Simulated scan of single mutants.
Amino acid sequence: MLMKKITKILVGTNNSGKLKEIRGLLPKSLEIYSTADFKIKSPAENGRTFKENSLIKARYFSKKSKMICLSDDSGLEIDILEGNPGIYSARWGGKRGNFIKAMNRVFKELDKKNKNWKTKKIKARFICALTIYGPNQKTISSLGKVEGHISSSMKGENGFGYDPIFIPKGKKITFGEMKPLQKYKMDHRFKAFKKIKKFF
């Protein structure tokens, strides 16, 4: 059976930063809808992995909208913190998803582990799981990762989430300090999207 190219899609997220980034990755010819167009609230994310949570969101938003949906679940893993915040990345920001609060919590947890952590390279990575799910559509999943380390302070106003404290491998500046185009070409979301873009 020949795979029909997807011509319209719902981006399954209520996070405006993610929506903007995913829109930037999708082909210009695609008809793109957001969850706000359908006024759909987000489901409970009770999966144990990024991939499971991505599928939960894609399936939920697709069933509510009767559309093919592309959903993302992503977060920051820090080795010295046993991989936390990981799938709880957004939850570290509290009910309102305040990432200043979340980044300060990262610093607090690192302080507990090692008072001198700022003088060391604290290994971390961003992970993104993307899922396409929908009526008459084979479920497609992909995973993207970008390795790096934690900045000793918050730097930069660009991006969203933990971008101001993550320095990708081989770079001297955080994602928060990068111009959006520079970040899009190397981040975890871009890497995950590259694996599924042939379906559009």
Results as ranks from 00 to 15, higher is better:
7 T>W: 03
183 K>P: 01
11 V>R: 04
196 I>S: 06
56 I>S: 11
4 K>S: 15
40 I>W: 06
67 M>D: 03
5 K>I: 11
116 N>Q: 12
152 S>P: 13
79 D>F: 10
193 F>H: 01
100 I>G: 01
97 G>N: 13
129 A>Y: 02
29 S>I: 11
58 A>I: 01
146 V>G: 02
134 G>L: 01
47 G>E: 08
31 E>S: 13
100 I>Y: 14
197 K>H: 12
67 M>I: 06
42 S>D: 13
78 I>M: 12
49 T>N: 09
1 M>C: 11
107 F>R: 06
160 F>G: 00
196 I>A: 07
81 L>H: 10
88 Y>P: 00
166 F>R: 03
193 F>M: 05
2 L>I: 15
9 I>A: 09
20 K>I: 10
88 Y>E: 10
124 A>Y: 03
85 P>W: 08
180 P>R: 11
80 I>V: 15
7 T>I: 11
55 L>M: 08
174 T>E: 03
74 S>E: 02
6 I>E: 02
135 P>E: 06
131 T>V: 12
117 W>R: 10
64 K>M: 15
178 M>K: 05
28 K>S: 15
174 T>R: 05
113 K>I: 14
103 M>N: 08
18 K>L: 12
87 I>M: 06
169 K>R: 15
110 L>P: 07
92 W>C: 05
125 R>P: 00
174 T>Q: 06
56 I>R: 08
